[in-house]
């Protein structure tokens, strides 16, 4: 991994979001929906609590649809247009390309997340929230977004068709969100207890909700980071395998 190559690719990728309407549509919809969820579904005002827990609670569901829309083009588009051939014959490795694309998408999500700062200002204006808990919430949200993005990146590498990439990513992400819930666990009712417990420990929600409560447990952070590494590794392998077709 050479930093110089990653930084050049990263800049190109990130600016490509803003060269098309993707960035603006994504950011507007993200801000709009996170507002709706917080104020209407979450009853932000009625709760009368000076924190952003209602705001963060809905992030997994928001990401479930928005992040696959962001990642579906990541590799599928390169494969469809043939530019992957250009990219991978430049002096860059597959690993560098995978990491740069992921980091650009992650940075873009971070920008969208950062633009929710009026929410944070509002809650500080209205009351006296624990700002450390809110910071933890942002950290947790960003880590979870990273995991969603890495899954999406892998699935985008599997196909040339962006719609297929979108749908499959949504399903896989849903499985990860719900893996602590009966609808997933019931599939494994035949399995020994230890396996069921392992699967339920894979739930995004369990790890995410413990972070947004302000409990920054190293294990939760490692959980998300290792998921990212694992799925990016899969992406690189899939690209190597599938670039011929």
């Amino acid at each position: 991994m050479r930093f110089s190559q990653i930084s050049v690719l990263f800049k190109r990728e990130l600016s490509s979001y803003f060269a098309t309407p993707i960035a603006y549509v994504f950011i507007v919809i993200f801000l709009f929906l996170s507002g709706i969820f917080t104020f209407y579904l979450g009853n932000f005002f009625a709760l009368g609590q000076a924190d952003l827990s209602t705001f963060f609670t809905f992030h997994p569901w928001l990401y479930l649809f928005l992040i696959p829309a962001l990642t579906m083009r990541l590799w599928a588009e390169e494969r469809k247009s043939g530019s992957i051939e250009l990219l991978l014959t430049l002096p860059v490795t597959i690993g560098e390309a995978v990491v740069s694309k992921f980091l650009a998408a992650w940075a873009f999500t971070a920008i969208a997340l950062f633009l929710t700062f009026p929410m944070w200002i509002t809650v500080n204006y209205l009351g006296e929230p624990d700002n450390a808990v809110i910071a933890a919430g942002y950290l947790g949200s960003l880590l979870m977004a990273g995991a969603f993005l890495a899954i999406g990146s892998s699935i985008s590498a599997l196909t040339k068709n962006q719609v297929i990439a979108f749908v499959i990513t949504v399903v896989v992400c849903l499985v990860f969100i719900l893996s602590g819930f009966p609808m997933v666990l019931d599939f494994f009712s035949w399995a020994p207890q230890i396996i069921v417990e392992t699967i339920s420990s894979f739930s995004f929600l369990t790890h995410f909700y413990s972070i947004i409560k302000g409990v920054i447990d190293l294990r939760d952070i490692i959980y998300f980071l290792s998921l990212i590494v694992f799925w990016l590794f899969c992406t690189a392998i899939l690209i190597e395998m599938k670039k011929a077709d």
């Binding site: 050049v8 490509s16 043939g82 530019s83 051939e85 250009l86 014959t89």
Partner: peptide
């Protein structure tokens, strides 16, 4: 490559600049 693929949303200048940097 066959069909001369490039990044369609970039300008010619931005594209060549990207290539020059990565080189």
């Amino acid at each position: 490559p066959e069909g001369a693929p490039a990044y369609p949303d970039m300008t010619t200048m931005a594209f060549l600049d990207f290539i020059a940097q990565i080189r």
